[in-house]
Structure formats: C-alpha cells, structure tokens
Design a protein around this nucleic acid. Structure first.
Lengths: 205, 205
DNA sequence: CGCTTTCGCTACGGGTCGTAGCGTAATACC
DNA sequence: GGTATTACGCTACGACCCGTAGCGAAAGCG
C-alpha cells in the first residue's frame, strides 16, 4: 500500500507492476544488506525504477520496509489438526519459520524500533501486520470453544483482552526466542511453549 | 565496558569519568532524538569529549548503545512478596517500567535488529543484558521450589530449558505488549499474564 | 627528565539523503 | 485528434554524517 492516490481519474496511471518489483527488491536488499545498509537508491536500482519514483510512493525507508515485510505474514494459515494444542503448534511453527527468514528478521525489529518514536509508523505496523494476523487467534479460539477445549468468556471486553494477551504471549515469545535468545523455535521448543500456554489458558480464571 | 585496554600500565590513564558521561549522553540523545537520528558526533558534544575519543573506546553506534541501555536493566531486583505470583508480578512490573522509558524503547529494539546480522553484537547483547538478568528467573524459581509452589525438575538440562522458556515468555510478552501493541503493561495486564504463565508452569508436565 | 598513552582539535574523502528541475510517456476528457 | 493531467526517468545538488588521519598538548610512569 504505497501512499494514497487521491481519486486521480485522469493522467498517466501508475505502473502497478512497479509496486511489486519494489517490494520484492526491498526484501532482497534486506537479505543481502540488512536494515542498516539498505539504501533507497540501491532498492531503486534493483527494482529497475528511478529513485524519485520510489519517493513518490513511499515516504521513506520505514514505510517501505513495513509494506515489504507485511506481505511475508499473509501466508500464515490456521491448520485444522484436530486439537487446540496441535493447531497452536502448527501456527507457531509457521510463524517461527517466517521469522527465521533474514528479510523478516532484520526488517521487522528495525521498523518496530523506529515506531517507538513515530506514531504514524506504529499505526501502520499495527494495521498491516498485527491486527491483520489477529484473525488467527480469533479463529483458533472460536474453534476451540466449539470443541469445548476453552471456556467461553463472560463478556466481549474480557474476550478482547484475552485475545490481546494471547497474541502478545505467542508473538512475543517466538520473537524473543528467535531474535534475542537466537535459538531456533523448533518443534521441541514450540511443544513446551504450547503446553505452558494452554495449561494456563485452560485453568479456571 | 568500552573496548579493551590490554594491560596498559604506562602512559596517560583513561578518564574514567568520561565513560559515564558518554553513556549518560547516549541515553539523553536516545530520549531526545531516538536511535535513527542519534549521531556519534552529537553524543560527543553532549558528553564534552572529542568525537575521536568516542571512537577510541567503542567500535560504533551499536556497541555504544548496547552499553548505555544495559545499565538500565541493572536496577532490576527480585522482590520478596511472599508468593511466587506476587514476586513475578513485581519483577514484570519493574521490567515494564524500564521499557516504558524512551531511552530503553528506542535503543533496545534497534540494537536487537542490528544484531540479526552481527554475531558479535548479538553476543554482546546476550552477555551484558540477557544472561545478566536471567539471575532473576533462577532466584525466583529456586525460592518458589523451596516454598513448594513449583515442582523440581528431573535433571539440570530440563531445568535450563525451563528457565530459558520462562525468560523468553516473560521478556517477549512484555516487550511485545509495550513496543508492538503499544499498550501499557499495567497492573491489570501483568496480573492476567502472571496468572496464565503460572498456571501453565504449575501444571503437571 | 624521557617514554608512553590519552585527549582535543581540525580536516578530509566517501557515502547517503531527500528534493528540484526538466523533458518525455501514458492515459482521460472533450 | 488535441489537450490537460499525471507518472516516469534522469541528472544534479546542498546538506549531513561517517570513520580516519594527523597534529600538538596533557598526564601519568620509571
């Protein structure tokens, strides 16, 4: 989602293919150079467009990388493995696999860091990555409650808080394991994590 | 810990006060400018030293900020509130309070992002921040096992894995809540988090 | 007093930033 | 088809920061 084209019905239309090329080039540059050495001039050359074209569509490096990374997380699917524990393990393993890719590792944390001083960027991240994937928690929770594996919440507010908590715990733990502890979130680890999380959630509130 | 002084017994000694001044100036610059706009020249001016002095002690921006941020976490203490749940809540609230400070927010995530492509930096972070604070988990766990609130592990390997898992879950969740979800890790949230975590840990393995 | 190391200062080439300006290309409207 | 409008590629530019080199002076040790 590059910057807005405010209902421009006239004039030369934008080259839609350029967007995809730029985002792909950005991810490639993240792999080869990492966040700090990634320059917009370099991305423009890789994508085969002029640097000025890049600046016409994105405000800067931050916004560009957010969009480039956000696409990576759209491939997440909630598997149906028959039990809540197995479903969670499946999603967490997918999430870990994405975070193991260098273009996600170096890009995601950097934009989160930048977002600490940029309210608009923080909102962009929330909208295009976080909220977008919260669907997985919602779907998994609903399915588990149908199965009777999780108690139903008393009211909507409590349910929302529970979803937020779960999301922070899952995403936070996997990110910390992968990027800070620098250990792989492999099947063994995910299994142990899921056991603790699920026991805690199933316990009476 | 600036770069090594390999047993230099002769010559003019380093101004020890300059180290503290530089690290304090770095934190101040993080507050006012954030990571991306922080320059070493600016830090040198704030600290009242020459830019070259800074480069003689630290290899670059990354290493400097790691040291500046690491000091923030040394004030963490394990409180003795009588129960494991209360102790954990106390530590997590302290941790959240540190992460609420702008010099920690903007600095910590940035160096973690940089560390994804810099093995030496990753090790520096692990040694000066992560491993350093793992003492809190170890102490809390030992105290809880004395109280009979947590089962003892079967062997040392399992104990180490459990400590690592707890650390990733606690640090990860608080960081994600604070920096990504951008919501305060206040008493209510910490209470809910602790309840889930503790129920999960106490459950039979 | 010599030796050694640190310190402050200046200066420098190299790189990136973000923008301005221009001519050209591609579409919509009349 | 002509015209207005927008997108595009290209070049050039001042501004900024990087990291280092080189110098003279300062502060310790024997």
């Amino acid at each position: 989602m590059p910057s807005r084209t405010p209902a421009s019905r006239t004039g030369r239309p934008r080259n839609a293919a350029a967007d995809a090329a730029i985002l792909a080039a950005t991810r490639q540059a993240l792999v080869e150079l990492g966040w700090s050495k990634l320059t917009l001039g370099d991305v423009a050359v890789r994508a085969g467009v002029a640097k000025t074209t890049l600046y016409r569509r994105w405000a800067g490096k931050n916004e560009l990388v957010v969009d480039a990374v956000a696409e990576l997380f759209d491939e997440l699917k909630l598997p149906d493995r028959g039990s809540l524990a197995a479903d969670i393990e499946g999603v967490v393993l997918q999430f870990a696999a994405i975070l193991a890719r260098p273009e996600a590792r170096s890009g995601l944390m950097a934009v989160v860091a930048e977002a600490t001083r940029d309210e608009a960027l923080r909102e962009r991240i929330r909208a295009s990555i976080v909220e977008r994937q919260k669907r997985l928690v919602l779907a998994g929770r609903a399915r588990a409650q149908e199965r009777g594996e999780l108690p139903a919440e008393r009211d909507a507010g409590e349910a929302a808080r529970a979803v937020d908590l779960i999301f922070d715990m899952v995403a936070g733990a996997v990110v910390h394991r992968t990027l800070v502890s620098a250990e792989p979130a492999d099947e063994e680890w995910v299994h142990g994590f899921t056991r603790v999380l699920l026991s805690g959630l199933a316990a009476p509130g």
